[in-house]
Design a binder for these strands. Structure first.
Length: 109
DNA sequence: GGGGTGACCCAGT
DNA sequence: TACTGGGCCACCC
């Protein structure tokens, strides 16, 4: 069993993790995108990821400039390349890899 | 209740 | 492209 981090996950953390878990392989989202989707700020998302990101594809969440999470550039880059994500130097090519969750508005309901 | 910290974002230079 | 300053939100002491 993976050792759970100290402190219990908050409601915001659950929303962030749930969303990140839905990001398909080969695609990425920025902290800002995730923040907007859960109705919070990018700093808060970063905090959540640093504390509870271990259980989700955290490498699929990158900064607004396409660079992977601070302190995990190498690890994230290795995983992302393994998923076939296009790179521009050390940064993800957001133009082709950026992803957004499907909005219920567009679908039948 | 107040202040510090952090896997951030944006605009300006 | 790199650096700086201000703003943003949640969590911890």
């Amino acid at each position: 069993m993976p050792s759970p981090p100290p402190g219990l996950p908050t409601e915001l953390a659950e929303r962030v993790l749930d969303l990140v878990a839905t990001i398909p392989a080969g695609r990425v989202m920025t902290y800002g995108d995730v923040a907007a989707a859960v109705g919070s700020g990018p700093r808060a998302v970063g905090t959540v990821m640093s504390r509870y990101g271990g259980g989700v594809p955290w490498h699929r969440v990158v900064r607004a400039d396409g660079r992977p999470a601070a302190g995990h550039e190498v690890e994230a880059g290795r995983l992302l390349r393994g998923e076939g994500i296009a790179f521009r130097g050390d940064r993800v090519d957001l133009a082709s890899a950026r992803w957004s969750p499907p909005g219920r508005r567009a679908g039948p309901d």
